[in-house]
Design a protein around this nucleic acid. Structure first.
Lengths: 321, 321
DNA sequence: ATAAATGGTGAAACGCGTTTCAGCGCAACT
DNA sequence: AGTTGCGCTGAAACGCGTTTCACCATTTAT
């Protein structure tokens, strides 16, 4: 493989001039430019991208930190991200963390080592303090609400979204409402918990701890959730569920157990996954793809803006009565 | 940020020795090793990964070429790939092609420029000849059956899988069978077409072109498919569908139109997505995650093996009668 | 006519880690 | 005592593109 010096020699110019031609810098005489282009053609030359990166200290790669890939929420975000990344000429490096500290740290280190120019964090487990150290190495976009200086934040107001679901249920006459989330801690869970507690207060209800389920991410978790639910003495009449996948699991298991939905139990999910439509799940629809796309845009913008809120909407189907 | 020469100076050794310590080469005296480690600690030194890549001509990055991310088939493969990649210390670069030639070429160029060590192709559109040129730059793993020398191939026998579905339907008494695929051309479609034609021959049926549907990938495509189907004079009694998502779309639209499944129309899907379980879709279950994992393994193996076939199994639920 | 600005060009330094190779010291072997 | 051989070490070359800076040749401005 030929390198830039070979081209310079072949075109009888300096490497500087070759570099200028390659990068469309001005101040190159027509003849020289053409000589260079010809040499490039003839020697089938391609710049060594690693050398370019080393030299420039920039890689045109953006890292994406997500706990899972094969999960509708993240896959939808990813799709939006990937689309925008391509249109802006960036490549994506996806780091699946499974919510493990080391993996998250690894990604941060990659940012530090300039293996990526910036990092988009779809969900995290490390503290903001830990993240802060790395801010000087590249832009960090967080897909959660963060007021902390230095981070770009774009988020769905999980508090309001949950509130919206909650109020909808109340309006339908429900008072015994439970909910499920993914991680016990974390942005979304915290917001939902807060909205839950405050929601209950508005209808003068106390928190029933046994109606709060955590660690529900996938379809299978929904099935388990329903099994656990049935062990309780008193059942809620409605459940606000982590996402539509989990909701689907709950519904499936309900069918098996002859629990009628929505007659015996109302279910409301999040995301508006295809499965929600398929099963007629009432859900809070989130514009994930669009959010991903925006998140990417902000990863390469020069300045940080104040947190960006993206909207959501309730989609009534037939799992709430 | 300090570099390897700073460390050498601080530890009063040569850069060579520092490099040896960093890479755990033998032949470094204990004291020197410790001096280096201490200097590294003190200066908070981290190797510049781009320099390492440039120097080594290796990146520990594997490229993944897939048409879509947010698609259950690819997402499942991706999951297996990502898991194995991490356990082997590799990073993933995902290139979403949307089946566009340029994008595929771009990925190939990245392989050439050593931006990735190898490439895993989940689905392609470019010809093998075009791919062949790039074989010398790194391993290329193809997730389809390829006998062509130089490529590592790992695949699901789409012919047999389709045949399995077909025979199952025949056994249930169906004679009027249609099917759908994704792209008009492409590995999977070709295999399915072949199996379809040969299957029809075994039951002395002629091909009904109007019962063959292409460009069906997602749920929405399934809905459209059913609408189109209903325009026909004579309907098939059974459909072998691209994947479970499309099958779900068909089923949903059927409900709207009062077509009873399986009474009026039998449906068999592929993949065994969560949605298949959710909707009770009879399907050919494919071990995609495992296949992804294996594909990754072979991307960094020294030698190429003959094509690897992965198994599948029919999962009977309630969309076939 | 003279000073100043502009275009064009290349040598050399830079970014940074890896690898080759030559050389030194000391222990083991004849 | 003389020769191998092995462990350890560092100078220098290497991978390769970018950028700075100095310098010459024209133009343009005064």
């Amino acid at each position: 493989m030929s390198n830039i010096r070979d081209i310079a020699q072949a075109a009888k110019v300096s490497v500087t001039t070759v570099s200028r031609v390659l990068n469309n810098h001005p101040h190159v005489a027509k003849e020289k430019r053409e000589a260079v282009l010809q040499a490039i053609q003839q020697l089938n030359y391609r710049p060594n991208i690693n050398a370019v990166h080393l030299s420039r200290g920039k890689t045109m790669v953006v890292g994406i930190l997500c706990p899972f890939i094969n999960h509708s929420y993240y896959a939808a975000l990813l799709e939006g991200i990937a689309e925008k990344a391509h249109s802006l000429g960036y490549k994506l490096m996806i780091i699946q963390t499974y919510y493990q500290r080391e993996r998250e740290l690894e990604a941060l280190e990659m940012l530090k080592h300039k293996q990526m120019d910036s990092l988009i964090v779809l969900s995290r487990i490390l503290s903001l303090n830990q993240y802060e150290e790395y801010l000087s190495y590249g832009r960090i976009v967080m897909c959660e609400k963060i007021e902390h200086k230095g981070f770009q934040s774009i988020y769905i107001d999980q508090y309001s979204a949950f509130q919206c679901a909650f109020e909808f249920l109340v309006q339908k006459g429900h008072e015994n409402i439970g909910y499920s989330t993914g991680r016990e801690m974390g942005y979304s869970s915290n917001q939902r918990e807060k909205a839950y507690i405050e929601g209950l207060a508005t209808i003068n209800q106390n928190i029933k701890k046994e109606w709060v389920f955590t660690n529900s991410f996938f379809l299978e978790d929904g099935k388990k959730l329903l099994k656990n639910l049935l062990e309780l003495n008193k059942l809620p009449t409605a459940l606000i569920v982590t996402n539509d996948m989990v909701a689907a699991g709950i519904i499936l298991e309900s069918k098996k157990r002859r629990i009628e939905i929505p007659n015996n139990l109302s279910i409301i999910g999040f995301n508006n996954d295809p499965i929600a439509e398929a099963m007629g799940i009432t859900t809070i629809s989130l514009p994930l793809k669009d959010m991903g796309s925006q998140a990417f845009e902000y990863s390469s913008k020069k300045d940080i803006t104040s947190p960006i809120k993206v909207s959501f909407s309730l989609l009534e189907r037939n799992t709430v009565q």
